[in-house]
């Protein structure tokens, strides 16, 4: 059986890619390590520590917002000037992933590549229509939704690294929110939802996206289930109807903590909350402008 023989500490992206080009079973990226530590060194010969490459900043580049893959969730949870209300779902999701000490270690890239059913940041990123930048044999940008058509790790080629998450700066009257239901302050999500809502000048919904987390093995795009909001004012009644529809149509997977019926109900509730908060933030954006 292969077990780890060494750690490599590259300080540039080039060095890291070079080390990772050894391929599967030979070299593996380690970021926060909070998931890989449970492997106890199995199934690779070298860990390539990617936390020293300087890819942990939030920046505005070529009209897009880039969040470095090794940004720690604890830092993102503090918020950032570039993460305006239309993107608030991201710092909000980062702020409720595990406990303080877990967030200080977990990286944004690790929470995408090492996705688990309870991972919160990817739910926010999907609702924000994010892409990721991949480096390796074939550098390219990939919409996150494509990466999540199966487990993201299965979509990465050997030696390929996520170096950044890319976000479009939101237009006017755009709000977003992430809402998570859990049993304790640090529990994994039973159900979570992230929404982005764009309002027109009359306060009607011009565009929206909605992603549900935790209820199924992979994130669930529920944008169509909220379709009746389009062109309408997001009133309490309408939002309650959306919640009802989600409860009817989402088909939760097994979770030892709760019945499928319960999970379907609460998926509707967190979706309703996320949409309502996103819409409220979109309205505030207008009054600021």
């Amino acid at each position: 059986m292969v077990t780890v023989q060494k750690f490599i500490y590259p300080t540039t992206l080039g060095e890291a890619l070079e080390a990772l080009s050894a391929g599967r079973g030979k070299a593996r990226a380690i970021a926060g390590g909070t998931s890989l530590v449970f492997h106890r060194g199995r199934s690779t010969e070298a860990y390539v520590d990617i936390t020293r490459l300087g890819i942990d900043r939030v920046e505005s580049l070529e009209g897009r917002i880039e969040v470095g893959a090794c940004a720690r969730l604890g830092a993102l949870a503090q918020g950032h000037d570039l993460l305006v209300p239309g993107l608030r779902a991201l710092p909000e999701a980062a702020a409720c992933a595990g406990s303080t000490a877990v967030r200080n270690a977990v990286t944004l890239g690790g929470s995408v590549a090492g996705y688990k059913r309870w991972s919160d940041p990817p739910i926010a990123l999907l609702a924000l229509d994010a892409s990721v930048h991949l480096e390796g044999p074939d550098p390219r940008d990939v919409p996150l939704a494509d990466l999540f058509s199966a487990h993201p790790l299965s979509k990465l080629a050997a030696g390929e690294l996520i170096t950044a998450v890319l976000l479009e700066p939101p237009g006017p009257r755009t709000g977003s929110a992430f809402v998570k239901l859990r049993r304790t302050a640090v529990d994994y999500a039973l159900a979570s939802a992230a929404a982005q809502v764009v309002l027109d000048e009359q306060g009607r919904v011009a565009d929206l996206s909605l992603t549900l987390g935790a209820v199924r093995p992979l994130p669930t795009d529920a944008t169509d289930l909220a379709g009746e909001l389009l062109g309408a004012e997001p009133t309490e009644d309408l939002l309650a109807q959306v919640a009802e529809r989600i409860a009817q149509e989402v088909e939760p997977g097994q979770d030892m903590r709760a019945s499928k019926g319960y999970l379907a109900r609460v998926a509707g509730v967190v979706a309703e909350d996320a949409l309502a908060t996103a819409a409220a933030r979109a309205r505030e954006e207008e009054s600021d402008a």
């Binding site: 750690f7 380690i30 926060g32 390590g33 909070t34 890989l36 530590v37 060194g41 860990y47 520590d49 936390t51 303080t100 000490a101 877990v102 200080n104 270690a105």
Partner: peptide, 11 residues
């Protein structure tokens, strides 16, 4: 603040 049980010594 971090957890010693969630880190390889090499990190």
């Amino acid at each position: 603040l971090m957890r010693a049980c969630l880190l390889y010594t090499g990190q």
